[in-house]
Design a protein around this nucleic acid. Structure first.
Lengths: 189, 189
DNA sequence: CTAAACATACCTACCGCGCGGTATCTTTCG
DNA sequence: CGAAAGATACCGCGCGGTAGGTATGTTTAG
């Protein structure tokens, strides 16, 4: 509630975080279309004016949300690659794992539903594509093989399937697909 | 323009078709969000009232649009299966081809952009999922193998990738993926 | 055969609402 | 005292949807 609380201690960083987090929560509960400026501000205990102080437009809010998500994915994937003994296909494996069981992205995380907007929103698509492009360039020595490309595409397809079926838990079949894809990153051809 | 033409010959079927077709065209030009009741009605040379006569709600219009699309895909896939000499994986091949080069669905068709809404809209997701489920049940003897499942997922991923990159033509890499996936339906394992 | 009776197809005009966004004021922090 | 942080009030717009009217078709009773 936007109580008449001018008295509250001013912690802009926390408010910004709260806005982002609650926006994500709303997207998870009421769908992506539920992300309205009013609702987000209210959920974060701030008025619309306050929100617009941090994000100049709704678009900026959404982009901030997505950038935040991308940063987490980035860190997660970096860590996974570093822990992987086999260099070949390490990025692809990290990516597949991130999609299936990742904390940032994976199924059964609120973010999975959220990242649906990336399909819709053009500017978000750009962010995502740029990220992927940069990643591929960075790992071109280990993950440029076409069979690995197919594996990544299949992971995307699984993600899409999971989202569209609206499941809340990962079924046995999806787990099987996961294992199969990981295995496929080890054998070439 | 909705000229004051009460006098026009009444051809409900044609009007219905026009509404559907123009809705698709609008989605292709101005994005899915461009599908507004006003715009569609105007483009079809009909007023909003006229549109609401044929479709009880905007939702009904969208669903009609999608059902129409599904019907075409259905026919296309049936034809492809019938023409396929090898029974094993025939549905998967037909599906992959439909996604990549199909007239109803494929890249470079207006419909590709349109079908983006299936990701967003819950009721449309149901229609799609039911269709796929029925298809899988129907071809379970020939297309139930997990490796074929992965192939279909990869096709979905390629579709998603194509959509999100917003390309207008199919690149050489996508063609390579296409060939690879088709080839993969022939060898088991 | 015809005209009443009904149904279908479509139009004009209107509405409420919720949205994103702005302008301006107050409070607190450095 | 600024300037940043946040509150309050307000606005215009475009959207989906409704109400009620008017033509055109189709059926049926006499």
């Amino acid at each position: 509630m936007p109580a008449s609380a001018y008295t509250r201690a001013k912690q802009p960083e926390q408010v910004r975080r709260a806005l982002l987090d609650h926006a994500a929560a709303i997207a998870m509960d009421h769908g992506v279309s539920g992300i309205t400026v009013q609702a987000v501000a209210a959920a974060a205990g701030v008025t619309k004016g306050g929100l617009f102080h941090h994000f100049g437009s709704k678009q900026a809010l959404i982009e901030g949300l997505f950038a935040d998500l991308l940063a987490r994915v980035d860190a997660e994937i970096d860590a996974a690659i570093e822990a992987d003994p086999k260099p070949r296909g390490s990025f692809t494996r990290a990516y597949v794992n991130a999609v299936f069981t990742g904390k940032a992205f994976g199924f059964a995380t609120p973010w999975a539903t959220l990242s649906m907007v990336v399909v819709t929103d053009p500017s978000l698509r750009r962010l995502w594509n740029d990220w992927m492009k940069a990643r591929l360039k960075r790992h071109r020595t280990n993950d440029a093989a076409p069979e690995l490309h197919v594996v990544r595409l299949a992971a995307d397809g699984a993600w899409l399937s999971y989202i569209t079926t609206g499941q809340t838990r990962m079924g046995a079949d999806l787990r099987a697909v996961h294992d199969r894809l990981i295995a496929q990153t080890y054998r070439r051809g």
